[in-house]
Computed example of a mutant assay.
Amino acid sequence: MVALIDYLKEQASDFVYRITPKMAKAKALKLLEEVGIPEPEIRYNQYPFEFSGGMRQRIVIAIALAANPDILICDEPTTALDVTIQSQILELINRIKAERNLSVIFITHDLGVVANMADRIAVMYAGKIVEYGTSDDIFYDPRHPYTWALLSSMPDLDTKDKLEAIPGTPPNMIYPPKGDAFAARNKYAMQIDFEEQPPMFQISETHYAATWLLHPDAPHVEPPKIVADRIKRMSQEVK
């Protein structure tokens, strides 16, 4: 088992530039302080099992920062954390982003987190981006049926309608389906969805979606009522 300080010192010395053990320790302590670990001088010799889940997540962020990155990739950073700790971790990431002028790629299934964190959003299904746009594009003008399905299944305090589950199961990508991978679960699917993958249609300068519903010859389909009502309510709240 490796003590925390040893791992942080290794990251600080090997991936940034060659420095002395004393300098590496000083950098490790500074990183611990930066991510909000209390009393780093006391905690730096402790082992992972001696830290809470939230503190371990902070230490993982410190490890990522040791190499002074320009881009921080956060893959489900709030998973298995309670709501209070989730909020603290998100605040920490936002603070570090501002202080270090970082770009952050945030990978998550939590649309509530996405709404609070993202400037631009890529919605992915079966390993491909199916819709891309600004946060306003995705939450106020979603166009892909999978994005509609995600928003329809997202609870909030004001929605009175029954939340809609996405029917079926994800495809087996060892044997990828013909056509649009979401077609079998898409109640708006047309015959062409089962035959050809849709291209990425441009909706605006910032907004794109890969769905045949955006083809000029496709029938006009409105978003589900639960999504339309939520968009209307959010628009009124913004005003």
Rank of each mutant, 00 (worst) to 15 (best):
L163K: 11
A184W: 06
K25C: 11
Y208S: 13
M154S: 13
Y140Q: 14
I19S: 02
F201L: 10
E10D: 13
P77E: 06
S135E: 14
F106I: 14
N101A: 14
T20I: 03
G53P: 01
R120Q: 13
T169G: 03
P198S: 03
P145G: 03
L213I: 01
G112W: 04
P167M: 09
P171M: 01
A64C: 05
S135W: 08
I73Y: 10
V104K: 10
T147L: 04
A183V: 00
F49I: 03
D217P: 03
A183N: 03
F139Y: 14
N101K: 15
T169C: 09
A115D: 09
G54L: 05
M154A: 15
F15C: 03
I59C: 02
I96V: 15
N68S: 13
K225W: 04
T147I: 09
K9L: 06
R120L: 14
E91Y: 14
I71S: 04
V114L: 01
A183L: 07
V238E: 15
P177H: 07
V113T: 12
V83A: 11
L157I: 12
R100S: 12
V35A: 02
R185G: 04
E99H: 15
I5H: 08
E91W: 09
Y146M: 06
D217Q: 13
E50C: 03
A210T: 03
P177R: 05
K30M: 09
I42Q: 15
A118E: 11
M154T: 14
F182M: 03
G53E: 04
T159C: 10
N186L: 07
L29M: 09
K22M: 12
S13V: 10
N116T: 15
P171H: 00
M154L: 13
H215V: 00
P216T: 10
I192E: 00
D156Y: 08
W212R: 02
Q88W: 02
T211H: 02
A80I: 00
I96P: 05
R230A: 14
F182L: 04
G179D: 03
Q57S: 06
A189D: 02
T79G: 01
F106M: 12
D193G: 02
D229I: 05
E33C: 00
P223V: 06
R43A: 10
A181N: 06
T147N: 07
N172M: 06
F51Q: 02
N101H: 15
M200A: 14
D161V: 07
A218S: 10
